[in-house]
């Protein structure tokens, strides 16, 4: 049984890093959050990275295999996609998706990026 205080602390730290202006905060989220064994932590981290809406943060959840939209957990992937679709300014996200579809070495990552790009065009 996970202590509620620990869950609250993790959520607050990730939210704080999402609001942080320093680009280094993306590295903190990527290093610790996206590599966690816990689905909930990866989910929270992916949401935070999308909310930052920065090229570096969006690349983490779009171009990396096993993270964000390419996560093995359906829940994490769906949450990341939903967060991308909810963005007010989708310009940067679409640009990175296009770049991933065209240039990424992994086919699965390219396919995922293509699907998300189509969804974003429709939304």
């Amino acid at each position: 049984m996970v202590d509620k205080k620990v869950i609250k602390n993790v959520k607050n730290i990730i939210d704080g890093l999402a609001m942080h202006q320093n680009p280094e905060s993306v590295n903190v989220l990527e290093d610790i959050g996206t590599n966690s064994k816990v689905d909930e932590i990866r989910e929270m981290t992916a949401k935070a990275l999308v909310q930052k809406n920065m090229p570096e943060s969006l690349k983490v959840v779009i171009t990396n295999k096993g993270k964000g939209i390419n996560d093995m957990s359906t829940g994490v992937a769906m949450t990341t996609i939903n967060e991308l679709l909810s963005l007010d300014d989708k310009t940067e996200a679409i640009r990175i998706l296009e770049d991933t579809v065209e240039n990424h070495s992994d086919e699965e990552v390219r396919d995922n990026a293509r699907s998300i790009k189509a969804l974003m065009a429709l939304s």
């Binding site: 049984m1 996970v2 990730i14 942080h20 905060s25 903190v28 966690s36």
Partner: peptide, 15 residues
């Protein structure tokens, strides 16, 4: 915050 996040994530994973 890096250290805080690491500590809490580890505590979560350990539990």
């Amino acid at each position: 915050p890096r250290q805080l996040l690491m500590d809490n994530v580890q505590a979560w994973e350990a539990s």
